[in-house]
Design a protein around this nucleic acid. Structure first.
Lengths: 149, 149
DNA sequence: GATTTTTAGTTGCCATGTAAATATTTCCGT
DNA sequence: ACGGAAATATTTACATGGCAACTAAAAATC
């Protein structure tokens, strides 16, 4: 079967955002898999490299996940020997997620996002890049706004 | 424990794309859940409302999923009575995904993406919106470009 | 015409995202 | 100090997304 002419796509911003984000994520996964990391793990490590010992809830906020998702990613990182959970003495509800030696040893990947930015923004002027960041922030704020109706 | 001052986030485009796309998706899911649809299901329905009887591979391309993911979404839509699989007579490998009466009956949601666009683009001028679409296309193309190295 | 290659679709496995329920601990109003 | 409310983390259940492997069927090659 040859290709029927495929359906043209409506100009849906949500779709375009998801396609761009998905392509960006795939690119990151490809680059990080050489180091045995997933993107979700790198994001958490990138936070810990700057501030070791974070709450799961802080990790969730930082990484944009909800707490259960963050907890399970930490599970796998713990299994992989990247981090360890340290129960807090002051607040017994709290668990501090801390880097292991192995997790620390990967901190040369801390500027990985700059590599990604360069690739994604190739061919865009600095002004266009700034504009894009600003527009994305406004769109995200619109998406999170509760309908007043 | 009060809030330590949270980590400032680097200006990572990939992160920003994922946050914006995630917020947009969540908004869509909220709106669609009233109709018993998920966003992935709506995307497929929106294609079928325009061209009933599509291959799973065509649906995968249109929706931006890989074939296995598309197949399983169709599974759930079939369980939910939205579509049915019709084996092709000409090519016995092929399955045509067709709307049921129930799937057809939801076609008043065909312009749902326009509602979403309006919300996401609130406060943006037409020029800014056009600019955003163009920039996103260029970023996505960059993300999909194979490194020549 | 038989064998190999390609194509379409599905299934299995694993990681992730969301929601709801739970346990534990702390906070706060009284 | 006491009791209810809030915070923290986890577990479970389910839907989704990506990749690899698999089956069946068609196409291509010899």
């Amino acid at each position: 079967m040859a290709t029927k002419n495929p359906l043209t796509r409506p100009k849906a911003l949500g779709r375009m955002l998801n396609f761009a984000a998905g392509a960006s994520t795939t690119m990151c996964q490809d680059l990080l898999s050489e180091h045995g990391l997933t993107l979700a793990q790198w994001v958490i490590l990138s936070a810990l490299w700057r501030q070791d010992g974070m709450l799961v809830s802080e990790i969730a906020d930082y990484s944009g996940n909800n707490a259960p998702a963050a907890s399970r990613i930490v599970d796998r990182m713990e299994e992989g020997g990247l981090v360890k959970r340290v129960p807090s003495k002051e607040d017994k509800r709290v668990v501090l997620v801390c880097l292991t030696k192995q997790g620390q040893s990967l901190d040369h990947l801390a500027n990985f996002y700059e590599t990604v930015n360069q690739r994604l923004l190739e061919g865009l002027s600095d002004e266009e890049a700034e504009l894009l960041f600003g527009l994305l922030e406004r769109v995200e704020a619109n998406a999170r706004a509760r309908p007043e109706a």
